[in-house]
Design a protein around this nucleic acid. Structure first.
Length: 477
RNA sequence: GGCCCUAUCGUCUAACGGUUAGGACAAGGCCUUCUCAAGGCUUAAAUCGCGGUCCGAUUCCGCGUAGGGUCACCA
C-alpha cells in the first residue's frame, strides 16, 4: 500500500556545512523512516542563489554518509520524483503557482521593495504588526513572471493544528499574511517550494525545527488553497549552545559534523548522543546501537524543550561505543587517524598492542600521548612532584622504591629489555610492598608523565633501557 | 513590542494524578594501581514562584517569572 508508506525527508539548503543541530533533525526523520520501513528522501533546497556555497551539496552528502543516514531518493540516486534539487524543479513550482492564480489565490505584487518597506515602517511607527495583506491591491492584474508572486490568504482566521511532538498548537490571525510564493528572480521561496515538493513527493511526516512553528499557519493556508491535506507535523526542540541560553549556531561553536569524524568520534556514538539529546525511550539503558535505536525510536517521545549541547557527555558515549567495538575495528579506526609521522612501520605493532587496550586517539592527541612514541614527551615539571606521589606514601619511600627499580632494571640486558622481562623484574619488588601501587604508580608516572597511561612495562620496553633509567633517575631527583 | 512555545539535580533525562522523585554525565570521597578509551563502592545534588481543581499534584488549570522561537523577494 503505497498510500500508507511513511515518507520523511531531510531538506537542507546548500549554504555551507551542516552542523550538529541540523543533523539531529535529519537523524529523527531517518530513524522514523527506517523504523517504519518507509522512505527517506534527501532534497536540496537551493532557491536562494545568493547564499549558496559551492561544494555544499557534496559536503552534506558526505556528512550523512558518515553517520550512515542513507537516503532512498535524492540528487545522486534519483527516484520517482526526480530531480531532487529545487533549482531544477522550477517548472513544477510554476505549475502550482498557475493553479493558485487560477483559483484567485495568487497575484503579482504591484509594489516596489521600497514601497513595501515604507508600509512596514509605517506599521512599526504605529506600533502595529506589519501585514502586507492590508495593502493588497484591488485588482490583481496579470503575472508576467517579472514581479514577485504573492499568495492571497484564502481565509483570515485563527489556526489550530496538531503537532506530533508539540501537541495542540494554535496561532492568531496576525500570523497570516500574503507572503511571496515566487521571487522576482523566478525562484520560489521556501514557504512555497517545500510545500509543493512535500506534496509531490508524498511526504507523510515533516520533521523540522521549531523555528517553523510560527509560519505553520501560512503553510496550512497554502494547503487549504490547494485543497490538499497537510502532512503530519513533527517539530523538534532546539539544541542550545553550551551557555544554555542560545540556540546552537555556527557562531556559538556549532561545528561541522565532519569535524567530529576527524577528531576520532565514532558515527554510532554521535548518533546515539544526538538521538538522546531531546529523545528518550524510557528505561535506564543509554547506550544503543544504530539498530537498537531504530527499534526503540518514537517521534512522539521527542522532548518539547530545548537541550544543551554537552561535549563531555558526547565523549562518554564515544567511549562506551569504543568499548563495544571489535578490536579490528578499533585498529582500523585508529590507523586512519594517526598522524603521518607516527605511521612508522616499526611502531605500528607497538601501537596496536597498546591501542587494543588503551586507544583513545582523541585523548592521545590532546594529552600529547602520541609523542610518547616519538620519544619527545614533555613532562610538566610543576605537577610532577605532586603527581608522582602515591597516596600517603612518604616521598622518601617513593624515591627509595624508584632506586630499587633502577638497580633491578640495570641488571637486565639491554637487548632483553622487553615488556615481559621488565614486568617480571618490577613485580618482584612490587609484590613485597604494602601496596603494589607504591612502586607501580611512580614508575608509570616517571616514564609516561601521566597517571593514566599504557602499563609501565610496555612503556619501558618502548623507551629502551637507557631512556627508562634516565627518566627514573630524573624522577628521583 | 505582537504572536507562539517551553520550564524536574550543574547537564541529558525517567516517573497511569498516589514513588523514600529513578538513571546517566559531570563533581566530591574511598578502594584498586599488570590501570588499559579503566573498574568497584560511596556522597552531595532537582520538581521556577503564587494561586486553583482534587482525598491527593512533578503531572491538570490560571497568573507571574525566566528562557527560547518568529515577525524577509533566508531557509
Amino acid at each position: 500500500m503505497s498510500d500508507t508508506k511513511i515518507v520523511t525527508r531531510f531538506a537542507p539548503s546548500p549554504t555551507g556545512f551542516i552542523h550538529v543541530g541540523n543533523i539531529r533533525t535529519a537523524l529523527y526523520a531517518w530513524l522514523w523512516a527506517r523504523k517504519n520501513n518507509g522512505i527517506f528522501i534527501l532534497r536540496i533546497e537551493d532557491t536562494d542563489k545568493e547564499r549558496e556555497v559551492a561544494g555544499s551539496i557534496d559536503h552534506i552528502q558526505k556528512s550523512l554518509k558518515w553517520l550512515g543516514l542513507n537516503w532512498d531518493q535524492g540528487p545522486d540516486v534519483g527516484g520517482p520524483h526526480a530531480p531532487y534539487i529545487q533549482s531544477e524543479r522550477l517548472d513544477i513550482y510554476k505549475k502550482y503557482a498557475e493553479i493558485l492564480i487560477k483559483k484567485g489565490h495568487a497575484y503579482p505584487d504591484p509594489y516596489t521593495e521600497e514601497e513595501v518597506e515604507k508600509f512596514r515602517q509605517e506599521a512599526q511607527a504605529n506600533k502595529k504588526p506589519f501585514l502586507y495583506r492590508e495593502h493588497r491591491p484591488a485588482d490583481f492584474g496579470v503575472w508576467d513572471g517579472t514581479r514577485p508572486l504573492r499568495f492571497k490568504v484564502p481565509e483570515i482566521k485563527s489556526f489550530k493544528w496538531n503537532d506530533l511532538v508539540q501537541g495542540d498548537l494554535s496561532a492568531g490571525e496576525e500570523a497570516l499574511d500574503d507572503f511571496i510564493l515566487i521571487k522576482s528572480d523566478g525562484y520560489p521561496t521556501y514557504n512555497f517550494a517545500h510545500i509543493v515538493d512535500d506534496i509531490e513527493m508524498q511526504v507523510t511526516h515533516v520533521v523540522r525545527g521549531q523555528e517553523f512553528i510560527s509560519s505553520t499557519p501560512k503553510f496550512l493556508s497554502v494547503y487549504q488553497a490547494l485543497e490538499v491535506a497537510p502532512p503530519i507535523f513533527v517539530t523538534t526542540p532546539p539544541i542550545l549552545g553550551e551557555g544554555g541560553n542560545k540556540k546552537l549556531s555556527k557562531r556559538d561553536g556549532a561545528k561541522d559534523i565532519l569535524d567530529y569524524e576527524k577528531e576520532g568520534y565514532l558515527a554510532g556514538a554521535m548518533i546515539n548522543y544526538l538521538a538522546f539529546l531531546g529523545f528518550n525511550p524510557g528505561g535506564e539503558k543509554e547506550v544503543y546501537s544504530r539498530a537498537e535505536l531504530i527499534q526503540v525510536f518514537d517521534l512522539s517521545k521527542i522532548q518539547r524543550s530545548g537541550a544543551m549541547w554537552n561535549d563531555v557527555k558526547l565523549d562518554w558515549f564515544n567511549k562506551e561505543h569504543m568499548k563495544r567495538l571489535p578490536q579490528e575495528e578499533i585498529k582500523k579506526n585508529i590507523l586512519e587517524l594517526l598522524p603521518e609521522k607516527i605511521k612508522n612501520p616499526k611502531l605500528i605493532p607497538v601501537i596496536f598492542e597498546r591501542i587494543s587496550k588503551w586507544g583513545d586517539v582523541k585523548a592521545m592527541v590532546t594529552r600529547g600521548e602520541l609523542d610518547l612514541f616519538s620519544k619527545t614527551l614533555e613532562i610538566d615539571k610543576n605537577k610532577f612532584k605532586e603527581k608522582i606521589l602515591y597516596k600517603k606514601t612518604a616521598p622518601e619511600k617513593i624515591s627509595e622504591n624508584l632506586k630499587l627499580a633502577i638497580t633491578v632494571l640495570k641488571s637486565l640486558n639491554k637487548n632483553n629489555f622487553t615488556a615481559e622481562n621488565v614486568k617480571t623484574a618490577l613485580m618482584e619488588i612490587a609484590n613485597n610492598l604494602e601496596s603494589r601501587g607504591e612502586l607501580l604508580h611512580p614508575v608509570r608516572y616517571a616514564l609516561s608523565g601521566a597517571d593514566k597511561s599504557p602499563d609501565p612495562f610496555l612503556i619501558a620496553s618502548i623507551l629502551g633501557k637507557n631512556e627508562t633509567l634516565s627518566r627514573l633517575q630524573k624522577a628521583i631527583e
